[in-house]
Design a binder for these strands. Structure first.
Lengths: 218, 218
DNA sequence: ATAAAGTACAGGGTTTATCCCCTTGTGACT
DNA sequence: AGTCACAAGGGGATAAACCCTGTACTTTAT
């Protein structure tokens, strides 16, 4: 395979070590050529505009500082629709997968897959225009089936505020004061959330909040 | 360089794609030979015992399910002190770096370093027995300054276990049963930790645990 | 060698917070 | 008129948090 017929790839990831290693892996497959690296979305924008060759596929990390994967995919899908985007993430959360696909990604890969899967995914994205692993396909189906959705996990604004306050050292009484509500109303929120989210106590609520990004440490 | 004179490396990381890529990077340097991968600490234990060749260095990820980097480094430093450990993490938190070094790691590398630094670090660990980047060296110096040390944050093993159980929906009574201790002893642990860590209630303890990586979501 | 100090575990008793059940008033919308 | 969402309350059981005390065993000092 000559250099001309190789598929051109760009890697966007803030972890230099990973990006560099990934390049070696792609080279070892023999049919790919890495044009350049970028350490975040805006770095990618600049380098893409200056590049003399355009990539066929962008391997895009989601968790990045400055301009994350969602923003980058969104921008690229309006700027150059012919460049395919393969999202790379450690997160197998359904919400994240769907959000990334809605931002225009052509495929979604978990970082804990076998290296051979990456080759398979890249070739599929190039030839078929999309790639979906079993997990992603399952998430897609779930989202299309409204019956299987979990409406009990939809939260109202006051519930979100309460949950994030419950992740602090405040007592329920103090939370009530802060929200200008009666402690008894807070008691009602608590009881309602415990049964809807199937948790047993306040620690369960904190864990739920952290899992679903309703509260962030530090 | 013949295969015999190459340095033997083992990679312990739950992200298969990263581990596989890293292997290609190491191969490209020419002076390293990857013996095997493991996806967590206990997987590593098993494979190490069966392996016909022993590694010179273990590249060890910190964030893993089942048996994390701390536990693994701890185990290895008592099992085989001649095998060097180079910790790999995205976390530049001072606490984490020091904890890993206390667990017996011979060096600490951030995942966002340049690939060439990895080669440098590996060679230094092999020849000098340790490697410390600027950031790690700075953290070490800080810890040597007794004025800035926080001895009240050093935890005993039972305290660590208690804290991670306090991050679940278990009551203190259930935690006591699980640890084969009286509920009153647990009450003592709780009181001691609240005053030492300057927190007011169990939620504070959960937040502390998550900040300092004593408990991990999911 | 023995007293003093420290550490780990466990107990009694009390207050406060959490958790749970059941009920009520008030607008708002069909 | 009905029911729905929301805020609020009464009463009570359980868990969490905070006292202070005691025993057994180890470490350290003299």
């Amino acid at each position: 395979m000559t250099a001309k017929t190789k598929h051109n790839i760009v890697i966007v990831d803030d972890h230099l070590l990973f990006a560099g290693s990934l390049e070696k892996l792609l080279e070892s497959f023999g049919e790919f050529n890495v044009l350049f690296h970028a350490k975040n979305g805006s770095d990618f924008q600049q380098k893409l505009k200056l590049a003399k060759m355009q990539p066929d596929v962008v391997l895009l990390d989601i968790n990045m500082p400055v301009m994350d994967g969602f923003e980058t995919a969104n921008w690229l899908s309006s700027y150059r629709k012919d460049i395919k985007v393969l999202a790379l993430s450690m997160d197998d959360d359904e919400e994240t997968i769907l959000r990334m696909l809605r931002c225009g990604a052509n495929g979604y890969l978990l970082k804990d897959i076998h290296p051979d899967k990456l080759r398979e995914a890249l070739l599929e994205v190039i030839h078929k225009g999309y790639y979906h692993s079993e997990k992603v396909a399952a998430a897609l189906l779930q989202s299309l089936n409204p019956a299987k959705e979990k409406p009990e996990h939809r939260l109202k604004e006051n519930e979100r505020i309460f949950i994030s306050l419950a992740c602090t050292e405040m007592t329920y009484k103090e939370i009530a004061e802060k929200m200008n509500l009666s402690p008894k109303t807070i008691d009602g929120y608590r009881h309602e959330l415990f049964s809807r989210l199937q948790i047993k106590n306040r620690v369960g609520l904190v864990i739920y909040a952290l899992k679903h990004d309703l509260y962030r440490i530090q």
